[in-house]
């Protein structure tokens, strides 16, 4: 499997906006001059189901899907979903995760239970894992809906892509009228 290809797996819950985050990420990577492929499933999964998006970049990318155990960065929007995909992380890989729990309907119905202390379990495998309070920082940025941009900011810290390319990616993908708060959110995430 090609060593010069980097793999990012986004994991979250349908409706959280992971797809838009993966679009901004892919645009930024294209602007950085990489070959980029991104793959996700629309449809059933979007009605509150579990959602993943595979983003791969490098000189030349073939498979749009990340081989098992080869995730370089696990980029999570919700704790359980991130934990679910933790075994896909390669040894030495990074985790950036939103400190948020969304209860699945099976938990709400009482037929299953939400695992305890997921942050601790993630850190046991990846001590450097970055756990970000996306909601708190989004509120500080002035719009609760900028959580994903906060998280992208935190992710950007763990990737060797110039800051101006991230900003260019954001400017290309975010409508003008929401740009200011998104740029603020990105910076807050970057500093987190």
């Amino acid at each position: 499997m090609s060593p010069d290809v980097k793999n990012i797996l986004l994991a979250g819950v349908g409706g959280q906006g992971t797809l838009l985050a993966s679009e901004i990420l892919s645009e930024t990577l294209m602007l950085a001059g990489f070959d980029v492929k991104k793959s996700e499933v629309h449809g059933m999964s979007q009605r509150g189901g579990s959602v993943t998006s595979h983003v791969r970049y490098g000189k030349k990318v073939y498979s749009p899907l990340i081989p098992d155990g080869q995730v370089d960065v696990l980029f999570g929007f919700e704790l359980l979903e991130t934990y679910r995909y933790l075994p896909t992380l390669r040894p030495g890989g990074a985790v950036v995760v939103n400190d948020l729990k969304i209860m699945p309907s099976t938990v709400a119905m009482g037929t299953e239970s939400y695992p305890e202390n997921i942050p601790g379990k993630i850190r046991a495998v990846c001590p450097e894992a970055k756990i970000v309070d996306g909601l708190d920082l989004a509120l500080k940025a002035g719009n609760i809906r900028t959580v994903n941009t906060v998280l992208l900011g935190a992710l950007s810290q763990r990737m060797e892509i110039a800051e101006e390319l991230w900003l260019a990616g954001l400017k290309k993908m975010v409508p003008e009228r929401f740009l200011k708060e998104n740029l603020a959110a990105f910076q807050l995430g970057r500093q987190a």
Binding site: M44, T106, S113
Partner: peptide, 15 residues
Amino acid sequence: GVAVPSEPLPNRPPN
């Protein structure tokens, strides 16, 4: 991939 102790996880079906 990294070794994660196995534990049953709740499903998240669409609703």
